[in-house]
Design a protein around this nucleic acid. Structure first.
Lengths: 346, 346
DNA sequence: CTGAAAGCGCTTACAG
DNA sequence: CTGAAAGCGCTTACAG
């Protein structure tokens, strides 16, 4: 008989006890004398027995699995940031004895996709889930929360009547933008533009709002020609600069990009037009992507700790799953300016 | 009642049939008349019912989940290659209706770790697993194969008596090395060194063997001073060059690195010593890492299609899980030279 | 074509 | 402290 075919009845027989007792030992019940416990444990060890998880779940235990849902319209494969997010969740879940089922959502509006995700929850494959990359108020997610599933959402704020099973997290983008604008203003810049992120995402909105507020606080004018559309991807930064240079208007002296990828794209476009960074134009990013340090020029940016965020998110999620605590959880992580070579004093 | 609390008894009652019939509809039995099927399906749709997967598995169905085990001693987080591997498996599994439970193994020798992995299989959480980054003949993996679990191993060859539940894949490193050496020889190089990968891994060995064979075929001498140790990580390439330059011996004119990360490290060390690539030394990598194209100088390398490999691995694994076919599967993927700027004619 | 029933491998009140 | 028994929600041979 393969070790993997052993079940609790067999263990009980070999240890000379009932299945109830085997179960009590496995689940660490206090009312089992040390002697009995040891005897059972020895057989379990010897036969390499692990209780069938489906049977355990069916009998009322938790699956000890959480879902990680990455909403990425483009190709996820290329980005090392994504990898860090996945690994963060897996490793921190593992510390709590949980496993992670990762799922990629190419299109959050696709009915087939929605059905798929719903299935994972309703089938009881997972005890809860974390969503990354969701738009503000995604119907699918709202439905899952209504159903009572424990859900963590990255880059989201709490609603007015927050449900006890909703956990949200975001960076303090407002503060990040203030640091960026203040830094540029300190270098003598007053013509500061911005390339926005995806405005369907909370961070897209809060970053833009933060930019406007910070400009006002520094007594600077926002020039509508310098507010450029983007979507957090490299290509959108490239396109934004193309558009900026094609319009005959005056150029800004500095631009803040919604994230580092966008900044990379912007710099690529500037290079093609023989504009140097920072000599002709200062650029500041957001995230502190792993590549930013190695970039030419090394990118000045607002650092953000994704790993810490995911760690806390994962930890809160599991706590909520296990204790069913009803205290609301909202995670906000601070950002900090990292000065490198992509901005100059004027 | 929450939708998520509905079960097959409830569906049966609402549709006016027995649970047996509900189950037959769900499992697409042919002996259910269209009318009955539609009636049941309508109720299932309406109540958003999904069968409890634990109950299904316990009753004998598959979990439709595969495990993905990444063995990485260092920090996985940084690498975009890892991300591509994870995403490849998830997406291809998804096409077959399978889910992926990803697990990171920091130390394949740690007993706690081993117990953890074993647990995932023995608990019947997954129907099979894929291992990436394993050493040649990892005891844990061999045990799992002995137990009858369906296992796919990347960078591994078939044993002499291959079990029907073992699937292996590797790149044609021999051919890759031949292309690299032949290309350099064609540029006039005869003093060609190598920085090896991890010799505990199959690819570490086959690459080195391929190098030696190719040198012989080109009528070139292997100078032991130019055979440098490494481990596939960037730092080892850096260290290898440091060591090479510290010894008073003659330098090679070209070096082949076990992979692109190693090549990056080597170039970094050369730069620190004011040696230019390719003017002073030609470097050729392996993998065609996403960063190689953007590197300065753009890296000449041997391209390898990880995505294709994982796609086929995932697909074979699932086929084997479902059909229990016993035909042996061994995947070998070809490599191709990509010429960029890191090698010069001499 | 369809239902009643056994069985999958656990957990946990219940009774002693 | 411990065992017998019910129950978790399915699937599937069996009988009709």
């Amino acid at each position: 008989m393969k070790k993997s075919d052993i079940n609790s009845t067999e263990i009980a027989r070999l240890a000379g006890v009932s299945r109830s007792t085997v179960s009590r030992v496995i689940n660490n019940y206090s009312n089992v004398p040390a002697e009995t416990r040891d005897k059972v444990l020895k057989v379990i060890q010897q036969y390499n027995y692990f209780p069938n998880v489906s049977a355990q779940v069916l009998a009322g235990k938790r699956a000890r699995t959480i879902g990680l849902f990455l909403i990425e319209e483009g190709n996820v494969s290329g980005d090392m940031l994504t990898n860090m997010l996945i690994v963060s969740v897996i490793e921190h879940a593992s510390e709590h004895g949980y496993y992670v089922l990762t799922h990629i959502i190419r299109d959050a509006k696709d009915t087939e996709m929605i059905k798929n995700v719903r299935e994972i929850f309703f089938q009881r494959r997972i005890d809860g889930g974390i969503f990354i990359g969701a738009a503000i108020r995604e119907p699918l997610i709202e439905e899952l929360i209504d159903e009572g599933f424990v859900i963590g959402i990255v880059d989201q704020s709490l609603s007015d009547h927050p449900e006890p099973n909703r956990i949200v997290s975001q960076f303090n983008n407002d503060s990040g933008m203030k640091q960026a604008v203040a830094y540029l203003a300190g270098l003598g810049h007053s013509r500061i533009g911005v390339i926005n992120g995806d405005m369907n995402r909370l961070s897209g909105q809060t970053k833009y709002e933060g930019y406007k507020t910070a400009m006002r606080m520094c007594g600077l004018q926002v020039n509508p020609n310098w507010v450029l559309d983007g979507d957090f991807h490299e290509r959108s930064g490239y396109m934004a600069i193309q558009k900026l240079l094609s319009q005959e208007a005056e150029l800004p002296t500095a631009i803040i990009a919604a994230n580092d990828s966008v900044a990379f794209g912007a710099i690529r476009a500037l290079k093609e037009h023989k504009l140097r960074v920072p000599e002709d134009l200062s650029i500041i990013g957001f995230d502190d992507h792993a590549l930013s340090e190695k970039h030419h020029p090394a990118l000045t940016t607002i650092r953000v700790d994704f790993s810490d965020m995911l760690k806390r998110m994962t930890s809160y999620l599991i706590t909520k799953i296990e204790q069913k605590t009803s205290d609301i959880k909202e995670i906000t992580i601070d950002c900090s300016l990292v000065v490198r070579d992509s901005c100059r004093r004027i």
